[in-house]
Amino acid sequence: MPQRIDYLKETASQTAGPFVHIGLSPGAAGFDIYERELGWDIAGPTAGGERIRVEGVVVDGTGSPVKDVLLEAWQANAQGVYAHPEHDREVEEGFRGWGRVITDFDTGEWGFDTVKPGPVMGRNGRVMAPHINLWIVARGINVGLNTRLYFSDEAEANATDPVMGLIEWEVRRQTLVAERAERDGKVVYRFDIRLQGEGETVFFDI
């Protein structure tokens, strides 16, 4: 027998269930318990770059909105820097780059305000197009789903993005592109996520 390899095994995932809001967004569950809820302010007051809003809905395989989703966003600032000790540049005071939103219980709509991230250096010196990393959990989702949101006004950068390029089926790449529009003078990107069926969003094993 060879020597034993004694790595531990990652704890198995379990669904967040229908009451995820109690733990991660209790105000939305209908009660105040914490002095501060986490994740409502992604960019902070001093971040540079374009202020944007991102909105969407998550739909299931029947085309119905999923009304008990929790999404988390993780993004770089407008200079393409993550607020993390391993990234070698500083971010603006108050910029965390992480956010957490839940869907409206009646409509399934979700949305958050942030700044548009800049391009981020990827592997092997190849630049990645601006993107927001999303993580989606809900009742019926056994392991949280990872995807990326890219921007429709970055067509040129998207075309050479190395992660987009991993998606063999070009027709599926569009599922990751949020559509830019203006509403009341504000920039709003629409990003609908389809868990299953026609136009199924690309999800990543990261």
Partner: peptide, 22 residues
């Protein structure tokens, strides 16, 4: 009805995956 039918796309990790909120 909430499970993707296509396979996940496996990617080699970049700064986007190796960093996270503090």
């Amino acid at each position: 009805a909430r499970s993707p039918r296509y396979s996940l796309i496996s990617l080699e990790q970049t700064a986007s995956e190796i960093t996270g909120p503090v």
